[in-house]
Amino acid sequence: MSDGQRADARRNYARILAVAEKEVAAHGAGASLEQIARTANVGSATVRRHFPTRRALLEAVSAHRIEALRVRAAELTGKDDSRAALMDWLDDVVAYCVSARGLAAALAYDGAVYENSCSAALEKAGEPLLRQAARDGAVAPEVTVGDLIAVIVGIVLATEHHPDPAARADRLFRLTVAGLSPRN
């Protein structure tokens, strides 16, 4: 492949990704790959060459958001109140998932054999926060970041079409964290 072809392929990739980010934000995880190709002014085969599966496209679209959550987890690690730090990060994960339509779908377990890079990155980022909270007795030791991400994904997917998805997702997440028992 010549340098010109590689440069053209890089430009196509960037253009497809930019269009895909807008389409996923507008239409969620079910955004039309054909519409993405038309808007990016490339053929469907070009889209599929760069993103062989819908999940690959969603993971690429979500990559910068995942990086922002990783950075946020690092900023919160080591704070005095480990439960508050973990909750702040989880609040950010919920907010990102609600605002970035398609991110919850990218994080969802689909039974695929390959590792879900979005979930793996979030689990790695959140692990130090969760370990510290567990050491401090603020979180049950058997809880995993994967468990927490699965709960968030479920809540976000369940509230996606609610008139106020952010408020509803936040309420359900708070209810989940607090549990069903009345406050003493």
Rank of each mutant, 00 (worst) to 15 (best):
S2L: 14
S2R: 15
R6P: 02
D8K: 13
Y13R: 15
A14Q: 14
A20H: 09
A20P: 04
K22F: 06
A29V: 11
A31F: 06
L33S: 13
Q35R: 15
A37T: 14
R38I: 04
T39D: 07
A40Y: 00
V42D: 05
G43E: 07
A45V: 14
V47P: 09
H50Y: 14
F51P: 13
F51A: 13
H64D: 13
R65Q: 11
I66F: 05
E67S: 05
E67I: 04
L69A: 00
R72H: 04
T77P: 01
K79W: 10
D81K: 03
A84S: 14
L86C: 07
M87W: 13
M87R: 15
D88F: 08
V93H: 09
V93M: 08
V94P: 13
Y96S: 08
S99G: 14
R101Y: 02
A104H: 03
A104Y: 04
A108L: 05
Y109F: 06
Y114H: 14
S117L: 03
S119I: 00
S119G: 09
A121I: 03
K124V: 08
K124E: 13
A125H: 00
A133M: 09
A134M: 10
A138M: 06
A138Y: 05
P141F: 01
P141A: 07
G146M: 02
D147M: 10
I152N: 06
V153P: 04
I155Q: 12
V156S: 08
V156L: 02
L157T: 09
L157A: 12
T159C: 15
E160W: 02
H161C: 05
H162F: 10
H162P: 03
D164N: 14
D164H: 03
P165A: 00
R168N: 06
D170C: 08
R174T: 04
L175P: 00
L175E: 13
T176L: 11
V177Q: 12
A178M: 09
L180I: 05
P182L: 01
R183W: 01
